[in-house]
Amino acid sequence: MAAPLIQIHEVRKEYDDGPPALAGLTLEVRAGEALAVLGPSGSGKSTLLNLVAGLDRPSEGTVTVDGLRVDELSESASARYRRSRIGMIFQFFNLLDDLTVADNVLLPAQLAGASRQQARRRAADLLEFLGIDRFADTFPGRLSGGQRQRVAVARALMNRPALLLADEPTGALDTASGQDVGRLLTELNQDGQTILLVTHDTALADSCATRTIELIDGAIVRDVRAGGDVRAGRNVRAGSDIQAGSAVRSGGDVQAGAGR
């Protein structure tokens, strides 16, 4: 079995005086996994993603990614970590309208100081691989939502990240485009790319995740491996309505127990 790429240990995150966004969460994600994080609004999905991305720090606990203690990084080190080890895609693409598709894709390599020639070659390969090479000199505003998200994926993969983080990647797309992005993520994962996917979309999680967890009130209430086991989280409260539903692939083996 592959070594854990992400190790989250007893992580707690609090904002001001409200209830914790994450309540002592522990989680391991192995290299090559595609983990979908499901949960209602306010369940802590985005907080989890931000902690893994080094965009935020936990109030307690540790976050280790690819052997690096992300929760201990300085702002500069955190930026270098993002640029070298992770790629991010967002619900609203977050492409820079003033830059062409090629320039958007080149940006992470340029920030990392990569050689111009190598970066251009890599960007061209990615655009071709993702089927958007004909839009290289186009500005993002002229593309459809699905095409924009493909550009965002190309940008995220530019520096060959160990981990791809996707925050509601289909949230702003129509059904066909959403399915298209789902297929793309699946293909990437099948090629060995580790993915952490935060979504409301259970269909997307079904289609491309190898493992799905569900968060409620900052705690894992369900952890389902494709073709494997289902473990209820330790913080499952009495009366919670937990259904395996579509998130559990056929043949899932449900186990009660601690979610760690």
Binding site: S76, R80, R82, R83, N94, L107
Partner: peptide
């Protein structure tokens, strides 16, 4: 500020 957030998410350091 949103664009700055994108840059930083892509790995732009504070100095950059």
């Amino acid at each position: 500020v949103h664009d700055l957030g994108v840059f930083k998410a892509l790995g732009m350091t504070p100095r950059q």
